[in-house]
Every structure is written in structure tokens, then in C-alpha cells.
Amino acid sequence: MARPVTVLLADDHSLVRGSLASWLRNSGISVVSEVGNADAAVTEAIRLKPDVVVLDIDMPGLQCFDAARAIRARCPGTRVLFLSAFFNDRFIEDALRVEASGYITKGEPPQAVVQAIHAVMSGGVYFSPEVQSRLVIDGGGVRLEHARATRSSTLTTREVEVLRYVARGMAKKEIAATMHLSVKTIDNHCTSLMNKLDIHDRVELARFAIREGLAEP
């Protein structure tokens, strides 16, 4: 009998994580660990070497794409699947850059995660329909259909992370504590965001993030 596929789940929402873990186990998949932040995902992936890591994009701690890069470097046999409520071009491009095997939107049913896991274990890739509509998948690999020069594409990964926290209504001190950075550094990121986006207050920053699909309304 073939051994079950092993999966590590990383999502900071315990209800989502627990429900998905139960669904996967009922589908014959072995969930070897459940964690609530990206730092723990890296630690557990290195320790357990699972077949697949399902990694939520919006978690506290280490930036998720940095976590995926670390997992791919230390565990070359492990596939990374991103799970997210967002499917902005910037996130999709970052996921492709770290060689993720797929990108699943949270609007899909749990069965889609099962399908994605089986797809990547068979050597394929899996992208939700909303994501796939923006991609070209051919002999040359997977890439965005066209590089759109949007204002959000000029932002660094750190700036996007700060922008998402601003959209949640978090104060600079809270953002600094969450990202393990100084308040001055967060202030510099906010200033850079406003300059790049030609926006002059935090309310407009939050509206921009929601409009661009970088944050939940």
C-alpha cells in the first residue's frame, strides 16, 4: 500500500486551519503539522520534510514568500501551495518567483485543495480559475499573461505587507510589533507608499489596498 501524502498546513485562522485539516484527513491525506505563522511553517517544514506545504499568504511574522523561498531551499522535495483570499497580480507574480506549485483562492471549496495536492504530487501545478485566467501555462512554464504596469507593481514586498496592515486599521506601533521592525521603519514605509501611490492619508491607502485586491474589504 502506498504511503499517504504528507502535508503541513500554515494558516493563522485556527478555524480555517482545523476545518481544512479535517477535510484533508478524511480524504486520505496525512496532515503532519498545523501552524499559525510563517516562521513556524519554515521550522516544521525543515523538521518534517512534508510532501506539500499549504501556506496562507496573509500571516503574521516572516513574510510568506520569504518563508516559501526558505522551504524550497532547505526542502527541495517539498512542493509549496499558496492559499489566499487575494489574487492580485503582484501576489501571483511573487508566488511564481518563489517557484510555488500552485495558488488556491479561499473562495474555492475544500475539495479544491485536495485536487491541488494530488495535482502537484503528480508533477503538475494547480491554480484556481481566477488565478489561471491571468496566466499562460505552456512548455515554457507558468507566467503572467501580460505584465501590467500598475501602481501596485512598483511596491516592494515589505511595502505591500505594511499596506495590508494599514488597510486593517492597525496603528504604526502595532504594525511595527507584528513585523518585528521599528516604528521609524514603518513610518518610512508609509511615507514611501504615499509617495509612490500619490496618496496623502491612511484612509486613502486603505481604500487603495482594498480596490487593488491587496486587502479584504
Rank of each mutant, 00 (worst) to 15 (best):
88 N>A: 12
93 E>L: 12
16 V>R: 02
175 I>N: 07
91 F>D: 02
59 M>C: 07
217 P>T: 05
192 S>T: 08
205 L>W: 01
204 E>C: 00
185 T>E: 09
112 A>K: 06
9 L>A: 06
100 A>V: 05
83 L>N: 06
97 R>N: 13
183 V>T: 09
49 K>N: 14
92 I>N: 00
3 R>D: 14
174 E>W: 03
98 V>P: 01
181 L>Y: 10
149 A>N: 13
32 V>G: 10
216 E>T: 15
152 S>Y: 06
56 D>N: 00
92 I>H: 08
34 E>F: 09
140 G>Y: 13
167 A>T: 13
144 L>S: 01
148 R>F: 10
189 H>I: 00
46 I>C: 04
145 E>K: 15
169 G>A: 00
78 T>W: 04
155 L>D: 01
64 C>I: 03
118 H>P: 08
215 A>E: 05
195 N>P: 11
28 G>R: 06
187 D>T: 15
50 P>A: 13
89 D>W: 02
110 P>V: 12
216 E>P: 00
71 I>S: 02
152 S>Q: 08
72 R>K: 15
98 V>A: 00
7 V>W: 11
188 N>P: 04
148 R>S: 09
96 L>M: 12
80 V>S: 02
69 R>M: 13
10 A>I: 13
122 S>I: 10
78 T>D: 01
177 A>M: 09
29 I>Y: 06
98 V>E: 03
194 M>Y: 01
216 E>M: 15
103 Y>M: 05
6 T>V: 05
115 Q>C: 14
37 N>L: 04
167 A>C: 06
95 A>W: 03
155 L>H: 09
19 S>A: 11
53 V>Q: 05
3 R>N: 14
205 L>Y: 08
191 T>A: 12
198 D>R: 09
98 V>I: 10
90 R>N: 12
185 T>W: 01
5 V>Y: 00
55 L>P: 02
90 R>P: 03
101 S>G: 00
166 V>G: 06
153 S>R: 15
105 T>K: 07
95 A>T: 04
96 L>K: 05
109 P>A: 04
135 L>M: 04
180 H>M: 13
195 N>D: 14
49 K>W: 08
15 L>H: 13
65 F>V: 00
25 R>I: 05
125 V>P: 11
141 G>I: 13
68 A>V: 10
181 L>N: 02
65 F>A: 06
49 K>Q: 13
63 Q>M: 14
196 K>R: 08
110 P>T: 12
47 R>K: 13
115 Q>I: 09
100 A>M: 01
185 T>G: 05
214 L>P: 03
126 Y>G: 02
7 V>C: 06
162 V>N: 08
130 E>L: 11
74 R>P: 08
40 A>Q: 10
200 H>I: 09
133 S>A: 15
206 A>Y: 07
72 R>C: 11
212 E>N: 05
83 L>V: 04
20 L>E: 07
125 V>Q: 08
80 V>K: 02
7 V>Q: 06
15 L>I: 15
102 G>Q: 00
125 V>S: 15
199 I>H: 07
118 H>S: 12
177 A>C: 11
8 L>I: 12
77 G>F: 10
36 G>D: 01
216 E>S: 15
185 T>I: 11
53 V>F: 07
149 A>F: 10
62 L>K: 09
114 V>T: 14
22 S>R: 14
78 T>P: 05
20 L>N: 03
203 V>I: 12
